[in-house]
Amino acid sequence: MTDLDLTPQDPRHPAASGLRSWRNWLIVFLLLAVAGVVLYQALTSARVYFLNVDEAVERRGELGDDTFNLQGTVTAEPRTEADGTMIFTVSFGGVDATVRHIGDEPSGLFRQGERVVAKGRWSDAASAEGDTPFVSDQVLVKHSEEYVEDNPDRVDYELDGNEIEIGAGIPDTVGAAASTPSLVT
């Protein structure tokens, strides 16, 4: 009992000040450093590598086989080949690109008229159709900030006086037919 020091340390003057506080600050510094590196990496790559279809087509040469995010609206009914490859066209700013997607199936919201973000790169090999597509291994559906309640009693999906483009697609390609299936799911 006697050699056990049970006296509480004076919290105003802790015994271990030098080494412990140095170590404490190292932890804080490391946390900050990790946060800073993550922020820098993510923000720079997001800015450089998040391209709309028109930009990606224009900068095709300099992009080479770099991986980037391609944003556009699905403009034609997607089709799936026998080997599971999904083929669809995305459009942005009046420019189209063909996407060959090999990987996990996109979410249930994926369909014609939806804005999507495909991760991948330009292919250097021409497809059977003769074009060189964008080869993607991940397709994410980008939801707009507009939410519309599925209300069977109301036919006008109207918000702020504007007709809602279901799925925030580009107007000329969003037909009622494209969105109907989801309404009854």
């Binding site: 993510a42 979410s107 919201l109 980008k142 939801h143």
Partner: peptide, 19 residues
Amino acid sequence: KPTWGTYWEWDPRLTSTAV
């Protein structure tokens, strides 16, 4: 996951929130 198709993406909003 059900909307985008992923639990996490290194998107600016998500990354800055993680930071």
